[in-house]
């Protein structure tokens, strides 16, 4: 023991969690939905997912090299952004548009604001909204289910047509996702499985999805809407489990998460029931993202012994 010993302040141990591990959990949770999108919309959906994810990683890597910053692609957060962004695109999307979306997500929304942890809104969400506004018709040209042998048709989501399905029951169709829509929003079953996986592995807290979905369910019931349709379509589950739970753009405390989830649910229902666009989830997420710093400040915990004296 003649060598010098390491001196450092306590604690001397940490748990095994890492950013990379958490992001890997999210990727695992997204995989079933990715596979199912390939089955429903055909192989091109897998191409869209692959290209979008690769573009996100590529933009992050290039940005870091150009700005002489440490390389951060190893934390896999760009992969998660890419997959979630692709889930918000239809299978028919021209690949260059997907790449533009990746640029907006990674460079404009994330890196220009300081990189991981500093973005004001969910990068994938901003990418999606920018594309939706810039390329509205191409963003809603949904690839029809592959087996229907119809390649591409401009059509409305179930939310816009309110239950014009043939064959299977509405519930079964919504659960399995065998209808037109963006890649990752139609199959409720795999989204729920992925969401449960994230909660069980403690990657995300149950509170945001529970408050969000619960609020939409209650408001739909009260306002006379079809509860099942409202819950299982229009990207609510994708938004509630995978986008609203983004660490950077959601509140810290349980109370904050509850308020955030309820706010999302109320805004989503208002936009869906009384707005002109079927974009309830995206716009409510963007608005609530911007409120997070205020929610954080307003919902701080009361420390042990820190209660105001009576």
């Amino acid at each position: 023991m003649d060598k010098k010993l390491v001196i450092s302040a306590s604690p001397h141990i940490t748990d095994s969690s890492t950013t990379r591990g958490l992001m890997l959990n999210v990727i695992i949770a997204l995989l079933p939905t990715a596979v199912v999108s390939g089955i429903i919309f055909g192989a091109r959906s897998l191409l869209v997912i692959g290209v979008t994810a690769a573009a996100c990683v590529g933009f992050e890597a290039i940005y870091n090299i150009l700005m002489k910053k440490p390389q951060t692609v190893g934390d896999l957060s760009a992969v998660v952004t890419g997959i979630i962004l692709a889930f918000n695109l239809p299978s028919t999307i021209p690949l260059w548009i997907a790449i533009v979306g990746a640029f907006i997500a990674i460079v404009v929304t994330k890196q220009l604001f300081g990189g991981l942890g500093c973005n004001f809104a969910n990068p994938a969400l901003v990418g999606r909204i920018a594309l939706f506004i810039g390329f509205a018709s191409r963003m809603t040209t949904y690839g029809f289910p592959a087996k229907a042998a119809v390649d591409a048709l401009a059509t409305a989501t179930p939310l816009a047509t309110s239950g014009a399905f043939s064959g299977m029951s509405v519930f079964g169709t919504l659960l399995l996702g065998n209808y037109g829509g963006v890649l990752g929003e139609t199959c409720s079953l795999t989204l729920i499985i992925g969401g449960i996986f994230l909660i069980v592995t403690k990657t995300i807290d149950f509170m945001i999805p529970a408050a969000y979905i619960g609020t939409v369910a209650v408001l739909s019931l009260v306002l006379g809407q079809d509860v099942v349709l409202q819950l299982l379509s229009g990207g609510l589950l994708l938004g509630a489990f995978f986008m609203a739970t983004d660490y950077v753009t959601s509140p810290f405390t349980l109370k904050g998460k509850l308020i955030y989830g309820i706010g999302l649910g109320v805004l989503t229902c208002l936009i869906r029931f009384y707005g002109t666009m079927a974009e309830g989830v995206s716009f409510s997420l963007l608005l609530m993202n911007l409120l997070v710093p205020y929610i954080n400040k307003a919902t701080r915990q009361i420390p042990l012994g820190g209660a105001k004296k009576k």
Binding site: S8, G115, L116, Y247, T253, L254, Q301, I302, P303
Partner: peptide, 28 residues
């Protein structure tokens, strides 16, 4: 074991404040 892992950017996950036995908010 003597070496501690290199820190990476904070992802603002809030684990520190949910774990803190005193209910403080280390991240903030």
């Amino acid at each position: 074991e003597a070496k501690l892992a290199e820190p990476t950017p904070c992802v603002r996950c809030g684990r520190c404040l949910n774990a803190c036995p005193m209910g403080l908010s280390p991240v903030e």
